[in-house]
Write a protein that binds this DNA or RNA. Sequence first.
DNA 1: GAAGTTCAGCTAATCGATTAGCTACGAGAG
DNA 2: CTCTCGTAGCTAATCGATTAGCTGAACTTC
Lengths: 342, 342
Amino acid sequence: MATIKDVAQAAGVSTATVSAVVNDSAYVSPELRSRVLAAVRELRYAPSLVARNLRSGRSQLIALAVADLANPFYARIVTAAEAAVAAWGYSLVLFNSDEKPDIEKRILSRIRTLGCDGSVIVPVGPESHYQRRDFEGGMPVVLLGRSIGDAGVDTVTIDNLSAGKQATNYLLDLGHRDIGSITGPVQLTTGSGRLQGMLEAMAARGLAPKTGHVRSGEFREDTAYSVARDLLVQTDRPTALYVANGVMAIGVMRAVADLGLRCPEDVSIASTDTVAGAGGLKPRLTRTEHPVKDMTNEALRMLVDRIEGKVAEPSRNVVFQPALVVGESCAPLKGSLHRKRS
Amino acid sequence: MATIKDVAQAAGVSTATVSAVVNDSAYVSPELRSRVLAAVRELRYAPSLVARNLRSGRSQLIALAVADLANPFYARIVTAAEAAVAAWGYSLVLFNSDEKPDIEKRILSRIRTLGCDGSVIVPVGPESHYQRRDFEGGMPVVLLGRSIGDAGVDTVTIDNLSAGKQATNYLLDLGHRDIGSITGPVQLTTGSGRLQGMLEAMAARGLAPKTGHVRSGEFREDTAYSVARDLLVQTDRPTALYVANGVMAIGVMRAVADLGLRCPEDVSIASTDTVAGAGGLKPRLTRTEHPVKDMTNEALRMLVDRIEGKVAEPSRNVVFQPALVVGESCAPLKGSLHRKRS
DNA sequence: GAAGTTCAGCTAATCGATTAGCTACGAGAG
DNA sequence: CTCTCGTAGCTAATCGATTAGCTGAACTTC
């Protein structure tokens, strides 16, 4: 690969002049300018970002670490992030922590070593708060999707409480009173927040789920399948279920079908997020959706602001609202008057 | 961020000694070694990859440019690539050419500028052969998934002919004689190859599709939907369809359902690749699948071999075989004896 | 005890680009 | 004609790490 020196020599000028032409950073006479440009073309010169970055301390790289690449939800984040990063003039370095805190730790140190200008991270596990220390005096970070209890870092999250409330209220409005839930792990805000939203929505109408009607599906399809199956064979099974995420919803639907039940005739199902709508699942799910693209764009906007030193505040936390999308997986409770709240 | 000089000063040694300790590249007395390590820990020193790379000419980055990030097929490639790249000790820089040749061109120059050690590219459009010139004397490249007519670059591809044959033979074995096809763009090998395989399979039994029963769906769901709809309202509609990729299959299934037809009772559908199986599509598709993970791993193995200068041959072309996965979207032709070829 | 050998650890060059600061040339003012 | 001012373009320092090559102390060997 040709270097700036080769170009300088070929054009009979100094490296400073070549740099000035290439970066348009100082006036250069038309005569020299065209000689330099000719040499650049001739030698197929492309400035080495590595060298440039060593000098400037910038790498033009933004790292994105997601919790599970195979999950379509994160795939959508990746898609949105790639576009946003490119639009801001950076390139995207992608990592997959696979939900494992120790892998995440290695990724963080790798990101530091690579000298990325900033990073967007979907934090893994509750112990992730070591991040602040890691980045102290260092690279800007934005946490995306899940919030870590402790502040000091910019975050972009979804209002999980509202997600649980919206989905549950929809079921309540259809007349359901006996609602169960397949939840995520309670140590995650995405798990506990949605559950709490569900409970609050019921409590607001003086209701509560029956004992045993709230189970953890651990955000996994297979676990949700067996838990749902277990729940639905009972004689006093709930008439509706709130399932806390998309992959679990697929497991639940499978359990419903395998038990010979019909959705929504025998059991109504509402869920939260993401993957669910896609892929033509048989009765399309009624669900609350995350504005994934907007959230990702916002995270990158915040990150770039920090990188370019445009922000003073110690930390900002943006919370997005989920939106209820009505599918065909919920029906009014049989024998009840279906009245919409006014 | 602490530099090697800070560490050297803190430990009272030279930078060479620090480097020797950090890289374990020369003997250092236990005494100094421990002083250096203490200083490293104290200052939270992490060697700058940027500086290291400037010296070594390596960046430890591997670029991956896919044709369409939003397509689950490429998402799977990304997932596999991230894992493979990490396993080889590199980091992944991700690009999305969005099927646009001019964006791909910009990506290629960006990759060069970034000084990536190598790149895996899903080439876009037939004109992509300019790549060879671009990389002349430069970075190793492996083309993945689609092959460009012209050699000189390592490639990893799928046997499209075989994919078309396998799917079509399956339909033929079920007794179908009147088979149609929704194809991809014929200028892509993934389009023309699969179609040709389909035609050859039929020709081998002295058959050929009826006029108008072979249509291009352009690898897009909406186009496939309208083309399939158009095809299926005809009175002499085919009894079976070979759909050349997964997203189009979804469109076709939708068309079938919207026309009040049933799959597989009224029309059998077989497709090729990828996304189709996922997401719990109603009757699971019978399809040929790409060994995406193996292909991606192989592409990276080949790339790393090149990067590390282990290969002499000018170019290698590995072709993977698709595998037929039987779902529930095909039924024996009504009134025909379903006999399996022995 | 002098000469040779070994090697821990240091000095300084190097990678490629940027840029502060300097040189020198030309034009305009007096 | 000389002095000043402006500026095009050059020289050289710099970013942080690696490494060739050197220094000098300690140890062998006769």
